[in-house]
Design a protein around this nucleic acid. Sequence first.
DNA 1: CCCAGCTTTCAAAATGTTCTGAAACCTCTA
DNA 2: TAGAGGTTTCAGAACATTTTGAAAGCTGGG
Lengths: 190, 190
Amino acid sequence: MARRRAISLPALDDAQTRFIAAWGQMGSTWGISRTMAEIHALLFISGSPLNTDQIMQRLSISRGNASMSLRALQEWGIVSRVHKRGDRKEYFEAEQDAWSMLRKVIRERLRREVHPVLASLFDIRDSTQLPASEARAPSSSPLAAAVAEHNRRLDSLLELVQTIDRLGERFVGSDGKGLRAAAMLLSKVS
Amino acid sequence: MARRRAISLPALDDAQTRFIAAWGQMGSTWGISRTMAEIHALLFISGSPLNTDQIMQRLSISRGNASMSLRALQEWGIVSRVHKRGDRKEYFEAEQDAWSMLRKVIRERLRREVHPVLASLFDIRDSTQLPASEARAPSSSPLAAAVAEHNRRLDSLLELVQTIDRLGERFVGSDGKGLRAAAMLLSKVS
DNA sequence: CCCAGCTTTCAAAATGTTCTGAAACCTCTA
DNA sequence: TAGAGGTTTCAGAACATTTTGAAAGCTGGG
């Protein structure tokens, strides 16, 4: 029977590297730059704060890139600066609670991407709102009918996006503990 | 008092154009190419099937681009081909039910993006699983402790991604009608 | 006030993605 | 089976994003 090999330092390092690659991959398919996701992965998986030089070395990236990506991660709220006594360097650490992390990401995506789209959709809908008089009477004009159909389609999409938005807001607003429970609960709704 | 201007054909056209732009914008922030999102928007908002030439004209894109984007949209399952009697051209139409559309998008994203990440994470976790003997006894070795921490972090992420996956699968699996109800219901869970 | 050590900025280079246009390819009909 | 009408493919061009590296900008101690 083959003996099970004991875990070694290189094996841990390798696992970290593979995790970083997988997370970076994922990030890039969800509209986050690969490097940003990799830095986040590195900070998350190592668990302790790292400074810019350590990050640069570990990921083979330039100082400028590291600096900009770290700033962006801080703007997302999932990485924060840490000062170490007696060290002039800045250290960075990742949010360690995965659910809290997700909450922050969703909060930002709502703010940056969903809300602007909602605003546009409302705006567009208003631009073809039929005057009340025309909307009330079943119109005989083909144009009015086309406009009505158009509005119906727009409204159905609006409703969808609004529901997603409300869902997200609720998720984001719930406190850390209740959050996971809510997700679990949903996963049982049939 | 200013008189309310009646809806005109140009106004409808303009609303369509604005919708197409907004939807294209959104697509690009969610990892879908702008053109693909725009074609989808055009088909969705016009409601009736269009052929390649009509799409090319309306969006000012090349035939090649239109063809490839239409193929991709069909692979996502949210656009389908339609034959028109007595017309040799192919026509395309978008799924008109917004919730069904969302369901299809989520199904594909789970398949293409979430499942591969899950597989990688499981794989990575397995590579540093402590032999049962070592894991059982509280270890004194600092290396073993580091590995244990690493595994803990990995597991917490795994659990998160798995929950999302299950949630998505359930959403995707539910039938059209129950779907929206479930989302509404979730939005009331506190 | 000046310097050392560190961080941030940003223009240009590298890289990656999307789009075009023309040629190859189907598939009906005569 | 020729060819008209239509669709797909794909190499290269256009465009967009990401990354680099060097210079400018901070900051705290001497």
